[in-house]
Design a protein around this nucleic acid. Structure first.
Lengths: 137, 137
DNA sequence: ATAAAACCTGGAGTTCACTCCAGGTCAAGG
DNA sequence: CCTTGACCTGGAGTGAACTCCAGGTTTTAT
């Protein structure tokens, strides 16, 4: 009645069941953060073993990795929660999810442009400082 | 005994003295945020008129604009405070300031690369969703 | 002169994104 | 069996970056 998996060695079934510690190591998130994400609805429905301990599937891991990308590219938390909800609803929401990602992609493109502008301005600023250094002695 | 400047029209002197409201409009920061930046040392030494009201110079405005760039490109607050301090110390710190900016520039370059990778991954994810949409009907 | 608008200071409140803690329960090795 | 380490829940605490008062002064337009 318990998945007989010890430390990431899926012996019998193919549905590997990682402990929270293992997921923390693989994602770079802390254990507390993983639990926190679950609390706020970014990561619902993580399964438990008979003792109530979390067991993460490969599917969970995939989702976490996408989540991190979205977070790192500045997607607002509310949107990520929304996306998580859609994902739980299955294939019927495929299109809506794609549209969300495309929106986000456009936002990211704008952000990239802005950052490139900042980069150019920094370059100029550095050049001007250099000039002043030279004439200053 | 008071600069006779009304609404950005520097009549006599060339040292224009903007009110906090005018600076807020020109920078997009809120009045509260401008005062907050002063409190935490990002924006020290803003002059006051005889009544104690802030009067911003063109120099202040330039600094705020650089500050916003640094903030928008993710420079840590402590570094920005440090940079502000150096700036106040005058030309002797020109080289140190340039080195700071060059460091920051390298950090920004890495960030840009990372974002480009995220962008590529997003693209792939979108493509995969599209494929699933298609086969789903 | 005076009312309304803008400004001041000091400090409290908010949101976000975690992080830590207390007081237990569960799992694995000897 | 027993100890030690990993995990659990619910809730409190943290730090960054603002944002919003309260209560009082200054500026500006009429």
């Amino acid at each position: 009645m318990e998945t007989p998996v010890t430390v990431a060695t899926a012996t019998t079934t193919e549905t590997l069941a990682l402990t929270i510690q293992q997921v923390a190591q693989q994602t770079g998130l802390s254990i507390d953060t993983l639990r926190y994400y679950e609390r706020i609805g970014l990561l619902e429905s993580v399964g438990r073993n008979s003792g109530g301990h979390r067991r993460y599937t490969a599917h969970d891991l995939d989702w976490i990795k996408l989540l991190l990308r979205l977070r790192d590219t500045g997607m607002p938390r509310a949107q990520m929660v929304r996306f998580a909800q859609l994902r739980r609803q299955g294939d019927a929401t495929l299109t809506e999810r794609r549209l969300m990602l495309e929106d986000h992609q456009r936002a990211l493109e704008q952000r990239l442009e802005q950052l490139h502008q900042h980069m150019a301005a920094l370059q100029q600023k550095i050049a001007r400082l250099k000039a002043r250094e030279a004439e200053h002695g």
